[in-house]
């Protein structure tokens, strides 16, 4: 039995009929065509699918679309309108990505990390990003990116 949901995504309200079992990640990607949010696992480990729900980073593969009814979701596409968010700029400047598959989720999680901890230590960043896996960078330049973004956002 399909259910009706209304979810505001990147500032635009979308009302759709969805199966109760549909994951939010699939709603964003397949229903709305917002393919910037990637899916890297099926056990909520990797964090590639992280988006913001009402301002907090959440793994969208772990949320049913119906659970997000009435909420406001921000994806990588909506992080900065037209320009680059300081976090995106920092990932570019500091070579915080290689293949780029984990990057949208990593950026969304990093923005949330700075929202909660505006002046993080290196340890804060490393532990704060433990829920987001990257296989390319060894995390060194991701840490540098988050540090640079923290400076830029002061």
């Amino acid at each position: 039995m399909k259910q009706t949901v209304t979810i505001t995504v990147n500032g635009v309200a979308h009302t759709r009929e969805v199966e109760p079992r549909m994951l939010l990640a699939h709603f964003l990607r397949d229903t709305l065509g917002l393919t910037g949010t990637n899916i890297g696992c099926d056990s909520s480990q990797c964090g590639a699918c992280a988006v913001h729900i009402d301002g907090t980073a959440v793994k969208s593969c772990t949320v049913l679309t119906v659970q997000a009814d009435g909420s406001s979701v921000t994806t990588i596409e909506g992080l900065a309108n037209g320009a680059l968010h300081p976090m995106q700029q920092a990932f570019w400047d500091k070579h915080g990505l290689q293949c780029g598959f984990c990057t949208p989720g990593m950026i969304m999680a990093s923005v949330d990390l700075l929202n909660r901890t505006p002046n993080p230590s290196e340890e804060d960043i490393r532990h704060g990003l433990d829920g987001n896996l990257c296989r390319c960078t060894g995390y060194q330049n991701i840490v540098a990116s988050v540090q640079a973004a923290a400076e830029a956002m002061k």
Partner: peptide, 15 residues
């Protein structure tokens, strides 16, 4: 190659 990757514009296989 980074601008398309940091903005979600890149098209991976499943996209």
């Amino acid at each position: 190659e980074d601008p398309r990757l940091i903005t979600g514009e890149a098209k991976f296989l499943d996209d």
